[in-house]
């Protein structure tokens, strides 16, 4: 492999039902910065069906060229057709690096592509920088955020990374930017399509994704009962926040599993996390300790939640919720 032959930063543009996802714009913004530093170009790989009309918008967000792969096989994401399309682009174009959002989809696509083209993958990066030899330095958290490891892929290309949504910054749309949109045709090997999609079921309960909330109002045992949760709902509405909970409250049936924060629930990183009446068992903390600002309210001054909190109040969670809601409504 002659590394000199590999050029360009390629970004996978994730779309769901034709809607370009925020993470794709964040990756484009980051790729733009890296490309300017490396004197290289940004290529957006836009896969789907009947999506071409949105290609131009990706140029305003940082792409120099948009590679549109429009095929019925790509209407809904399944692993093999998407892997084949990306791998064909890699073989054809020889990218220097490739960024994919570390979403449900990207965490499936990334490893599959990297194994097929035999290159290194850094999963779930939170920072990407240019190194002394123009290689990419990808930094990712491990051990639940207790260690940051910086990883390089020295001898193989493209240098691949999946990048956590919400940590990098999209650039503002610049309509004066110019670039090219090209249609790219992929020859699919349908003999390898061994997973058949029978149906896609939409579930209302999953529509609220607490991992995307900017503010979470979370409750535990100290909230007590349904009434306590109603009060939390009120505060959440005032703050335009979402309600979440610890496992105890989900098991008690006060709230659905899709709103559970913690090791067997979801890992959240909102700007602001309220922990009301949550003691802070390690299983819960693992799911929220990376929140920007944590406010804990607990009647036990020795509760472990205060070790991860930025602001703490020792007191009755229900009373504090009431006071806070009243004060905020003013």
């Amino acid at each position: 492999m002659n590394l000199e032959d590999y050029k360009g930063i390629y970004v996978f543009i994730e779309q769901r039902e034709g809607v370009i996802q925020n993470v794709a714009l964040e990756l484009l913004g980051q790729a733009r910065k890296l490309a300017d530093e490396l004197n290289d170009k940004v290529y957006a790989m836009f896969l789907g069906h009947n999506i071409a009309d949105q290609a131009q918008s990706l140029i305003a967000r940082g792409a120099d060229e948009v590679i549109v792969v429009d095929a019925p096989e790509l209407t809904e994401y399944t692993t093999e057709p998407y892997t084949q399309a990306i791998c064909q682009i890699i073989e054809d174009r020889k990218p220097e690096s490739m960024l994919i959002g570390a979403t449900t989809l990207g965490r499936d696509l990334g490893p599959r592509v990297s194994a097929r083209v035999e290159t290194g993958l850094t999963a779930d990066c939170t920072k990407i920088e240019v190194g002394a030899n123009k290689e990419l330095l990808m930094t990712r958290p491990a051990f639940g955020g207790n260690l940051m490891a910086t990883i390089v892929c020295k001898n193989h290309r493209p240098q691949m990374g999946t990048v956590r949504p919400g940590v990098l910054f999209a650039m503002d749309a610049d309509e004066n930017r110019t670039g090219e949109v090209v249609n790219y045709e992929v020859k699919f090997n349908t003999a390898k399509f061994k997973v058949k999609l029978i149906e896609t079921v939409k579930e209302d309960t999953d529509l609220i994704d607490i991992t995307e909330a900017k503010i979470l109002v979370s409750g535990g045992r100290g909230i007590g009962n349904e009434e306590g949760f109603k009060a939390m709902d009120g505060l959440a509405q005032t703050l335009e926040a979402e309600v979440s909970a610890s496992r105890a409250m989900v098991d008690a049936g006060y709230i659905g599993h899709e709103r559970q924060v913690g090791q067997t629930g979801k890992t959240v990183r909102p700007d602001l996390y309220f922990a009301f009446g949550i003691s802070g068992a390690i299983q819960h903390v693992a799911g929220m300790e990376e929140s920007d600002l944590i406010i804990a309210v607990n009647k036990d001054k020795d509760a472990p939640i205060f070790q991860v909190a930025d602001l703490g109040i020792v007191g009755d969670a229900k009373q504090i919720i009431k006071k806070l809601t009243e004060r905020l409504e003013k």
Binding site: E76, Y77, K194, K196, L197, T200, D206, L207
Partner: peptide, 15 residues
């Protein structure tokens, strides 16, 4: 599981 719902799939062994 996919965002907002689920996919029902069939496949063949080995998988």
């Amino acid at each position: 599981a996919i965002p907002g719902g689920k996919q029902v799939l069939k496949t063949e062994a080995p998988f």
